[in-house]
Amino acid sequence: MTTTTTPKRVSIAESLRGAITEEMERDPKVFCLGEDIAVPGGWGGAFTVTLGLEERFPDRMINTPIAELGFFGVGVGAALMGMRPIVDVQYGDFLFLAMDQIVNNAAKMCYMSGGQCKVPLVMRAPVGATGRGSQHAQNLERYFIGVPGLKVVAVSTAYDARGILKAAVRDDNPVLIFEHKLLYGSKGARAESGAIDASSEIPEGDYVLPLDQAAIRREGNDVTIVGWLLTAHLAQQAADRLADEGVQAEVIDARSLSPIDFATICASVEKTGRLVIVEEGPKTGGVGAEIAAGVTERLGDRARASIRRVASADIPVPFTPVLENAYVPDVPRIMAAVLDMVKG
């Protein structure tokens, strides 16, 4: 038996594992459904999040065939009957296989039943370019933020991962949680090269976080930088170096992508007058476009400078490190955009 007390400083993978464990202990209707999540001696999912849980909950860790469309549908059906499934894909890219069940069923059941149905379904998906070529690498957020009926969140710290996972399990709506492969802190054979430390001190006891609020990671008056997942960390690194050049950047982790927390973002942009949105993924049609349009609509002339997006080129994710590194936004590109804007 593992202990229910969460260790003090934990990775995102450990934090999610602890939160799932506690939610399953709290509510017998919570169960996990996914590929390679319940194989003794196995992986605990692709990134160790559910490692060992099958020993503790042998009847509620449901290992599936490789059939994403099918088991997302199974999750919808179980949720409609009052269960609270946590369904995950090994790589976010596989969400395309499950698209019909997510978009046509999970997201629409409440509306098209006139409010009779609830689908309390949690979906988890790892994203991000990590040396795996084009099909195990995409950032899928853009494809889901425009789906009414779906809540979309992105966790970039272990503290957030715990509070958001718990809130998602207790929410009566389908919630899609994006996680980043470089932020998990997975260990052993599942460790990622190039990983960034996203671990947190976790306080004792239960807590939930709102599913609709951005987090201000650093305060500043000169420019607002918005990122999420990996780019929330890159934005903070850029902000640290910008401070050396006398530019005080305010860094916002968007965290909630549907709905987007425009209140927090716009308040910051009103203060700084400048907005840089940093997105891993093609610039065209990205989440950044929605943030930019939403801020423009709300603030109009009150933003002093034009909005900039630092995003990937409009290309599939390349494999070779020299090209992949150029695909993912980095600190120098963020700094260049900010400096150009501040001094321009």
Binding site: G77, A78, A79, L80, G82, M83
Partner: peptide
């Protein structure tokens, strides 16, 4: 079809 399988699983 998968939805019904999920209902029955519940």
């Amino acid at each position: 079809v998968p939805v019904a399988a999920g209902m029955a699983l519940a």
